[in-house]
C-alpha cells in the first residue's frame, strides 16, 4: 500500500536519519504490512474452504454436476492452464531477484551484460505478472461461458473473490514495477536505490507465496 511506496520513490533528499535499529523505516513498514496481509488472505482462504462442498448448484470445482434439467457440467477448474500460470508467476519471482541484484550490484564485476540490466529484469517481471493476469482473465471468462458466475453459487462467490483479490494484488504489483522501470529509464536506478527495489520485491514475492498457498489449497486439493 501507500506506506511502502510513500517515501520510497524519491531519494533526492537522502538525509541519513538516525534510526534505533539501523534499519530503514520503509522496510519495517512493508514487513508489518505483509504481516497484516497474512490475515487478509487467511480470512479469504478460510471462507473458501468453509464453503467448499456447500454449494447447492453447480458448476463445481472438482466434481461433475448434472442440473435438474439434465444439463451436464464438467469439473470447472482447468489444472493445466493454471499450472502454466503458476509457473509464470513463480518464474517472475526469479526475475524479480535478478532485478534487485542488478540494481544492488550495479557497476560491480560480474554484473555486466544481461545480468546487470535492471531494466530488462524489471520489464520481464512486470511482463510475467501481466501474463499471469492474462491467464486469470482467460480463466474467468471461460468459467463464465461454462456457467459459473460470481452469483451462481457459494463456490463461484468465494472463488472469484479470493482469486480476484489476489489478481488485484498482482495488478498493483505490476503498476509498482512499471513505476520502478520508468524511474530506471529516466535516471537509472543505482545501488542507492536498492531499498526502493527491495520493498517492491518483498511485496511481489509475498503475492507469489500467497499464490503458492492458493494453488495447492484451491486447485489441487479436492
Amino acid at each position: 500500500m501507500s506506506t511502502a511506496t510513500a517515501a520510497a520513490t524519491h531519494d533526492d533528499h537522502e538525509h541519513v536519519h538516525y534510526t534505533t535499529t539501523g534499519l530503514d523505516n520503509r522496510k519495517i513498514a512493508v514487513w508489518a504490512f505483509i504481516g497484516s496481509e497474512c490475515m487478509l488472505f487467511a480470512s479469504l482462504i478460510s471462507t473458501y474452504l468453509i464453503y467448499k462442498g456447500r454449494s447447492r448448484v453447480g458448476p463445481f470445482p472438482h466434481e461433475t454436476w448434472t442440473s435438474p434439467t439434465g444439463e451436464v457440467f464438467k469439473p470447472i477448474l482447468n489444472i493445466p492452464v493454471t499450472s502454466a500460470s503458476t509457473f509464470v508467476l513463480l518464474m517472475s519471482s526469479l526475475f524479480m531477484v535478478m532485478a534487485l541484484a542488478a540494481v544492488e550490484n550495479r557497476g560491480k564485476p560480474g554484473y555486466g551484460g544481461l545480468k546487470g540490466n535492471s531494466k530488462f529484469w524489471l520489464a520481464t517481471t512486470a511482463l510475467a505478472g501481466t501474463v499471469f493476469l492474462g491467464f486469470q482473465a482467460f480463466e474467468f471468462t471461460s468459467f463464465v461461458h461454462e456457467g459459473l458466475k460470481i452469483t451462481t453459487n457459494l463456490f463461484g462467490s468465494s472463488f472469484f473473490t479470493l482469486t480476484g483479490f489476489h489478481g488485484a494484488h498482482v495488478t498493483v504489483g505490476v503498476l509498482w514495477l512499471l513505476t520502478l522501470l520508468a524511474i530506471d529509464m529516466k535516471r537509472g536506478l543505482t545501488p542507492k536505490d536498492t531499498l526502493v527495489v527491495d520493498i517492491c520485491a518483498l511485496y511481489w514475492h509475498f503475492v507469489d507465496v500467497v499464490w503458492i498457498a492458493i494453488f495447492t489449497l484451491i486447485y489441487l486439493i479436492q
Binding site: T21, I28, W31, A32, G35, C38, M39
Partner: peptide, 15 residues
Amino acid sequence: NRLFIALFVGPLFIA
C-alpha cells in the same frame, strides 16, 4: 534482521 522474522512469523502464526 531478526526483527523482520518476528514481524512476519508472528502474524503468519496467528493467521
